[in-house]
Amino acid sequence: MKTGRNYFATYLVLVALAVGMMFTRGAASLGLAAIQAACFSLVFLELRHGRQLYRVIFLTGLAFFVLLLSICFIDAVTRETVQPQIPRGTGLR
């Protein structure tokens, strides 16, 4: 029954964070979401007490997501706008 109480206590914290999110914007709301997700994963997905293998699988999925995110952002930030080079005399200018 102790676990049931843990679930309920965590649920109240998560609802409070969701209410907090309603009054925030931008990075702050995403930050609250990250805290909410961490609490949720540890208690409801049982990453805190579950088998090591489950943690490895979950974190591998997350790592691939972070890899995708970072590579895409690096590409988007560093890429220069390409101006098409149209040869003179082609009548396309």
């Binding site: 969701a18 999110m21 995403l30 979401a33 909410q36 997700a37 949720f40 994963s41 409801f44 997905l45």
Partner: peptide
């Protein structure tokens, strides 16, 4: 179900709140 909740935790601020 928990995974769906986890996804919604990020969908909500991303779609509805982030300015």
């Amino acid at each position: 179900w928990h995974m769906l909740t986890l996804l919604w935790i990020f969908l909500f601020p991303l779609l509805y709140l982030a300015a």
